[in-house]
């Protein structure tokens, strides 16, 4: 469903998705622009629900609805498998020391320690104190992003125009989910985007482009300390971070049977 907005300040806007809220139509009907149930095109979207990437006892197995948020604590030694069920669905992710949330994921520390701008198998996801929070023990796409940040109502106005102000965004999800753990604005920092593709070109040009993932692709993270994981199943409707088709994620926490190959170095 689209509507036309005459915007006298900015470049003219033709068709935009309607705001995601219940509203009254001119003929008096109360309708919701939030799709009922899943918002992906479920009649023709191929879904692969996958399995844990590491053998072991499953202690938690949950689905994250399209556009929704999720959180959970992964205990030290446990492995979190994230399944990109519908393919190219960005799972925006923040990590915290579960006991002391002032210690949280740090994109720059993660990148500076490993001397590389992309997350791959073996990457140690570090905190703002340089400590290992989690290690990527398996990963089924070439590279994962931690440069692109999270979408927000506010940054969406910069990228796409003020007509998208009432679109849902990942920062909204982080605030919703973080509030359950006493976290707020101060606690949102540069995040990870599982299954999102942000190439950095020679001249420094960078941007979110078509993804390299596919239905059922996975990443597995071993917790090095008890780690609070926040997820925003990205609801962005204006760029290819989810193929313009938000799909579910599956979060599986297991107690691995065997020692994993990649050892954190701190």
């Amino acid at each position: 469903m689209t509507t036309t907005i005459d915007n006298p300040v900015m470049r003219p806007v033709t068709t935009v998705p309607v705001p995601t809220a219940t509203y009254l139509t001119p003929d008096g009907q109360l309708v919701s622009s939030v799709p009922v149930g899943a918002s992906y095109a479920d009649d023709h979207t191929h879904l692969e629900w996958g399995d844990p990437l590491v053998p072991g006892a499953v202690v938690l197995d949950e689905q994250v609805a399209p556009r929704a948020s999720w959180s959970g604590v992964v205990r030290a030694g446990q492995v979190l498998t994230i399944v990109d069920v519908g393919g190219n669905q960005s799972g925006d992710c923040l990590l915290y020391n579960a006991q002391h949330t002032d210690e949280r994921y740090s994109a720059p520390d993660t990148l500076a320690w490993q001397d590389n701008a992309y997350i791959r198998t073996g990457t140690v996801l570090r905190s703002n104190l340089g400590r290992a929070l989690m290690t990527v023990v398996d990963n089924e796409i070439d590279r994962q992003d931690t440069i692109g940040g999270a979408c927000s109502r506010e940054s969406n106005t910069l990228r796409y125009g003020h007509h998208v102000m009432y679109h849902h965004g990942c920062r909204e999800n982080f605030l919703t989910e973080g509030a359950k753990h006493g976290l707020g604005m101060r606690d949102i920092v540069s995040n990870i985007n599982w299954f999102m593709n942000v190439p950095i070109e020679d001249d420094g040009a960078l941007g979110i482009v078509d993804g390299m993932s596919a239905p059922g692709k996975r990443v597995a993270l071993r917790a090095e300390i008890d780690t609070l994981v926040l997820i925003s199943n990205c609801p962005q409707m204006n760029n290819p971070c989810n193929d313009f088709n938000p799909t579910p994620l599956r979060m599986i926490v297991s107690e691995p049977d065997t020692d994993l190959e990649y050892e954190a170095d701190a």
Binding site: A107, G149, M185, S190, N191, L206
Partner: peptide
């Protein structure tokens, strides 16, 4: 609580390297 947001500072201008003309953006647009 409104403060430098490095991700938006790189992403919004479509440019990772800072230089003349680059805006240092907050997370609040």
């Amino acid at each position: 609580t409104e403060r430098l947001n490095v991700a938006d500072t790189q992403k919004i201008p479509w440019q990772a390297y800072l230089g003349a003309g680059h805006p240092l953006l907050s997370g609040d647009g």
